[in-house]
Design a protein around this nucleic acid. Structure first.
Length: 667
RNA sequence: GCGCCCGUAGCUCAGCUGGAUAGAGCGUUAGCCUCCGGAGCUAAAGGCCGCAGGUUCGACUCCUGCCGGGCGCACCA
């Protein structure tokens, strides 16, 4: 609602300025005033123009305001001038409210013919997921939800590095340290990812100090790539089991994938070979014949735009032993994402994943190179990769390759969604038994899979569920245990997801366990509680005074003269016009939802949506305390409040859906 | 060394393309359940916005230089 109003006001103000000064302003920005008593929308155009024209800003502003008051713009009741010359618009509140209600009731947007591919999670399949991975998955999932909300077909990928060093290390742990066979590994009891978490730490430790074992890693790596021997067999078991655990963990949070892309298949199906051939046809690839990269195939980047500051910008694509690097495979994958390779994957359904606790089951596929079937994955028009900021350099190489191979359209639409890591607060680190010296000045402790430092995602969720379920039980003693736990899980997910989405993406999250486990203040449950309150009101209206909210809203929209509930549209507008704060502030905030969603996806700053949703809940709670609805004495007052609560419920529900925060029916 | 990011209330963080009296949560203090559920609301205290210059009618925001911290710059990913 507000975004349309903003552009129509900007246009109207522009015309007024032109009429008065004879000059068309370059930019007319319509902003939100710092305080509600300064108006509903504000415009600093008089300040900018006055300077250019050598005029008094206050006087010019007054002239514009006078003109606008004589030639009104639809939606604005009056214009005032304030401060150094700000132009303040006071909206026609009734029109704004009913426009809001209309837009809230409008259906889904039209589908857009632009396929968006979102890659997220992409955890090394050798250990349990921790809260850092969770930040990635929550952001990727919310991004996907927003794209879908906007009408884009979305395909979600999770990239599985099944042939990398991290998997090799765990394979060494199983075979060399534990002396286990592939069948032994298959027989390891759940939670398998927890078992590997410890084993990986142990293997890393040994590998760091044992030359022979380190040499063994090179052998294992080659075996994984060649799919030979017990090493490859163990690796396959490890990857399969771990990936299923990851998918299960994320499913607890309402996060789903369409396709798991396995790095090994990029090699086995010669996607890399094809990409390599294509690269060789450009003049950007060469084989080094001397120096430290002798024998390696290199990607030429030195001196090219964006890489000129690096000492040795050229990147190894194929090692001297013939093994492709991670970047090489990622390049092939990204060319494939845009349908730029002839070759493609084979696919099969992923089995053996528990359905979500609520019974919901999403079809997950994975790539394969043995058997499988054809599917229409890929062929994206836009690709977004959610990967932490530490991989910015590598991602910029991937982005550059699109241009090198003559695919600027892909280069332009490819986005590295970067974000900062999650670190542990010293208090939380100590609580986990991670050594932090007392005189350590560090503000936080970085997590490390290699060292086993971190809060496992499932541990966080389990504790959240435990606390939430207990709290639900105390507040609702009449509920059965299974009901308590069902709601407890919803609250836990809300708490976890809000916590990981509320920070700006370039902010390092200093993870404090107690703060993350909180249900009060700026948290997911605060939002959920506000939503539950709203629906509770509608129940009460129906049960106690036989008012059906949908019917009331519908009647007022049709401007029924003598509505069943005794309110009239004119009466409602009159009440709204005389409101002195919280109610109108809520209406105004409700009108900004679509604008905030657009801003969030454009800036890739999902925290904007989280913060906005929290602000909505805050506005609602103030409204809730100050404006009785069921007990409202006047019919018009009650109708107005019902309309506002109705709009709130709808808008918050949309915001929560996008944030992936479940909406409990009670709490 | 080079590049990117960050220094805002006791703590954790917001602050839109420069705009009006710099906000929120936690914590602290004081209030609010004969009234739609207190996971809530109200109020108070708490700030040389790291430091120093510059640009501007106007700087938390833009530029430069310092100081402090983080992350990158592998034949790891």
């Amino acid at each position: 609602m507000i975004n349309e109003l903003r552009s129509s006001l900007a246009a109207g103000i522009g015309r007024a300025v032109e009429h008065i000064t004879g000059t068309v302003p370059e930019l007319v920005s319509v902003e939100d005033p710092p305080r509600p008593d300064m108006g509903d929308l504000a415009c600093p155009v008089a300040l900018q123009m006055a300077r250019k024209l050598g005029r008094n800003p206050r006087q010019l502003g007054q002239q514009i305001a006078d003109h606008l008051n004589q030639h009104p713009i639809a939606g604005v009741r009056r214009w005032t001038i304030a401060g150094p010359g700000f132009l303040n618009a006071w909206l026609d509140r009734g029109a704004a409210l009913f426009e809001l209600i209309e837009s809230v009731r409008a259906g889904a947007v039209a589908p857009k013919p632009v396929k968006v591919l979102v890659e997220h999670t992409s955890i090394n399949p050798n250990k349990a997921a921790h809260i850092g991975h969770l930040r990635n998955s929550c952001m990727g999932d919310t991004l996907a939800r927003i794209f879908r909300h906007q009408g884009y077909p979305v395909e979600v990928h999770n990239y599985i590095d099944d042939t990398g060093v991290q998997v090799a290390d765990v394979v060494i742990g199983f075979i060399d340290l534990r002396g286990m066979s592939a069948d032994d590994v298959r027989a390891v009891p759940e939670p398998f990812d927890y078992y590997c978490w410890d084993l990986y730490t142990e293997a890393s430790e040994r590998l760091a100090h044992d030359e022979q074992l380190a040499e063994r890693r090179r052998v294992v790596l080659r075996a994984l790539e060649a799919e030979s021997g017990v090493e490859a067999e163990v690796a396959e078991v490890v990857v399969d089991r771990i990936v299923r655990r990851h998918v299960r963990t994320m499913r607890r949070l309402g996060i789903e994938y369409d396709l798991l892309v396995k790095e090994g298949d990029i090699l086995a199906l010669d996607l890399w070979a094809e990409a390599f051939e294509r690269l060789k046809r450009t003049d950007s690839v060469y084989q080094a014949n001397k120096g430290k990269h002798e024998g390696c195939w290199m990607l030429h980047l030195s001196g090219t735009a964006g890489f000129e500051d690096l000492e040795e910008a050229d990147k190894v694509l194929v090692r001297s032993n013939g093994v492709a690097t991670y970047v090489a495979k990622d390049i092939a994958y990204h060319l494939w994402k845009y349908g730029l390779l002839e070759r493609t994957f084979r696919y099969e359904r992923v089995g053996g994943i528990e359905p979500a606790p609520d019974g919901h089951e999403h079809e997950v596929w994975e790539t394969t190179h043995q058997g499988g079937q054809e599917q229409s994955f890929g062929h994206a028009d836009r690709a977004v990769s959610v990967i932490d900021v530490r991989q910015s350099y590598l991602q910029s190489i991937v982005g550059r390759v699109f241009y090198l191979v003559g695919e600027p359209q892909a280069g332009k639409t490819f986005t590295h969604f970067s974000y900062e890591m999650v670190a542990l607060s010293p208090v939380t680190a100590r609580a986990l038994g991670i050594p932090v010296a007392d005189d350590d000045e560090r503000q936080f402790v970085e997590m490390s899979g290699r060292r086993g430092y971190g809060v496992k995602a499932d541990d966080l969720l389990d504790e959240l569920v435990r606390r939430a379920t207990e709290e639900v039980g105390q507040r609702n003693p009449e509920l059965s245990n299974s009901e308590r736990e069902r709601i407890g899980r919803q609250i836990a997910v809300g708490a976890a997801r809000y916590f990981l989405l509320k920070y700006a993406r370039n902010t390092v999250i200093v993870f404090d366990l107690e703060a993350a486990l909180s249900f009060e203040g700026e948290t997911g449950p605060y939002l959920q509680y506000a939503a539950v309150r709203a629906s509770h009101i509608f129940n009460k209206l129906r049960d106690r005074i036989d008012v059906d909210a949908a019917e009331l809203v519908g009647g007022l929209l049709r401007e029924v003269e003598d509505p069943v509930y005794g309110a009239t549209r004119a009466g409602v507008c009159d009440k709204l016009a005389n409101d002195d704060g919280p109610l109108w502030n809520l209406v105004l905030a409700l009108g900004r939802l679509e604008e905030v969603i657009e801003q969030a996806v454009e800036s890739l700053e999902l925290s904007l949506l989280a913060k906005y949703a929290f602000g909505l809940a805050q506005h609602f709670n103030r409204f809730y305390h100050g404006y009785p609805i069921v007990h409202a004495e006047d019919a018009d007052d009650r109708a107005l409040r019902v309309l506002v609560a109705y709009a709130f419920q709808k808008q918050l529900a949309t915001a929560l859906e996008l944030l992936g925060i479940p909406l409990p029916d009670r709490m």
